[in-house]
Structures are given as C-alpha cells and as structure tokens.
Simulated assay, not measured.
Amino acid sequence: MSKTDEATDGNVALDEPISQVGIAGSRVDHVYNRVKEDIFDFRLLPGDRFTESQVADRLKVSRTPVREALYRLEREGYVFVHFRNGWSVRPFDFVMFENLYELRSVLETAAVRKICDLADISRLDELQSIWLGPEAERETEAMRAAELDEAFHTTIVDAAENPEIARVHNDVIERIRIIRRLDFTQGYRVERTYEEHAKILQALLRRRADTACSLLKAHIEESRAEVRKITIHRLQAARQS
C-alpha cells in the first residue's frame, strides 16, 4: 500500500514528534508507548482507523518501527490490522482487564502468604517510611502517587523471594499500567490508597497473613471497580466531544 493510499484513512490523534533515538528498538518502544497512551487516554477511540504512514509522519520516524510497534500492540489485543487498509483500535476489552486484575490478586496474595512464612522480612522496611510516615509527607501528585503504588505492590511480590511469581506479576503490571493510573485521577483515591496500604503493611509486619490477604483483595477490587467506572465515563465523554 502506498503512502498516498494510506493517507486517506482515519485520523490519528498523536501529537508531538519523538526525538531522534539512537537505536531502532528504542524507537519501537517510543511508538508503542505513544500509541498505547493515546488508546488509554481516549485520543484514539475503539473503532478509530489509522495508518502506519500517519503515525510515522506525526512521530517523525520511519514506518519500520511503527509497524513493529503496531504488531506488538496487536499481539496484546489493542489494535487490529486490516489487509491493505490500515489499522483500527479494538473495542475496549473490560473482560481482559478484569481477568488481569483477578490474576494480580491471586499472585499478590500468594506472595503475602510466602512473606509471612519467611524468617527475614526486612525487604519490607523500605515501605514503612512511605506508607507509615507522617500524613503531611504524603505524595499528592497523581502520577507520582501511581508510581509509588506500583512500587508498593511489586516490592511485596519481590519480597516473597519467588522469581517466577515476580516475573508473571511484572507482566500483569505492565499490561494494566496505563489504565491503572486512572485510579489516581481522583484526589480521594490517593488518600484512600495511603490508608489501605498502611493497613496491609501493618498486617504483613505482624505476620497476619489472613488479615493481609483480605485487606489486599479488597484494595485491588476497589481499584478495579474505580478504574472501570472512570474508563466508562471517559469513553462516553470522548465520544460526545
């Protein structure tokens, strides 16, 4: 398909160009992350059509890294390639994300039970200054709070000292990272996260596995429900704009 033919399809809402990157792999990652962010920020809506040339032109890269990034997104279920007719965003798959949240809960509660059986749980010490510290020192910026939240959960899994659980958990976290950040667009959710993390951590430090697991499951479920609600709201708003 020629560049001229491709330019007739759809619209892409990608905004700023990618700076020149030294290696092709980095360019693929940049394109992948930008398109994925556009999907989850609802600049690209389910069903929107676009072409490789349009993405390449906007991001100031060749079509090769664009194609590789899009096939990566296709394997993950975010986009669909049309034979000789560009690409489109797949319908939003709430079932997939809810399955990933369920898997995350299974992995993290398994990690909690392993931690409570370990002789040394000093790897949890680094979490105390953040989540059990003074209220005045709490992070309020949404993106930074999201990063701290992810670090809390990955630290717990890593502390279980099972690299296979950690490997699968990292894959799940990667796949839900962009949608998870929506949880911190509401101010009260940041405050709630501090409160819930503190209770989970206190139960872990006291080796109360059942309590920690119960708290953790409730925490993940509340996050999942909040993200779903925000996603539906933003999707509806984007369609009406």
Rank of each mutant, 00 (worst) to 15 (best):
R63Y: 03
S62P: 04
V55D: 01
D41N: 06
K36W: 08
G47Y: 09
R49H: 10
L44V: 12
F50S: 00
V35W: 02
S62M: 05
E52S: 14
D38L: 06
K36N: 10
D38A: 15
Q54K: 07
D38Y: 05
L59P: 00
R43Q: 13
R63E: 15
R58D: 04
D38W: 06
T51Q: 05
F40P: 00
R43L: 14
F40Q: 05
L45P: 03
R49L: 14
T64I: 06
E37T: 11
R49I: 13
L44I: 11
I39D: 02
T64H: 08
Q54P: 00
S62Y: 07
S53K: 02
F40M: 04
R49D: 05
S62E: 12
I39Y: 02
T64V: 06
L44N: 00
V61T: 14
D48V: 08
I39M: 10
K60I: 09
P46L: 11
S62L: 02
F40S: 05
T51G: 10
I39P: 00
D57L: 14
S62K: 13
R58Q: 11
A56I: 10
T64M: 01
T64N: 11
K60M: 08
L59Y: 06
R63S: 11
G47S: 08
E52K: 11
T51D: 03
I39S: 00
D41V: 04
F40V: 11
P46D: 07
R49Y: 13
R43H: 14
F42C: 13
V55W: 03
A56F: 07
V55H: 03
T51Y: 06
R34Q: 12
D38V: 04
L59I: 02
V55E: 02
D48M: 07
L59R: 04
V55M: 02
L45H: 07
S53V: 12
T51L: 07
L45W: 10
E37C: 04
D48Q: 06
A56L: 11
R43F: 15
L59S: 11
K60W: 09
R63N: 13
R34V: 10
A56E: 03
S62F: 02
T51P: 01
F50E: 01
V55I: 12
F42Q: 03
T51K: 00
T64L: 02
D57Y: 12
R43Y: 07
K36I: 15
R58P: 00
Q54L: 06
R49A: 08
G47N: 03
R49G: 05
S53E: 00
F42W: 15
K36Y: 12
A56K: 06
E37G: 01
R58F: 01
V61S: 10
G47C: 15
R49F: 12
D48T: 09
F40R: 00
K60R: 12
V61D: 07
K60F: 11
F50C: 09
R34N: 14
L59A: 04
R58W: 05
I39T: 03
F40D: 02
F42R: 05
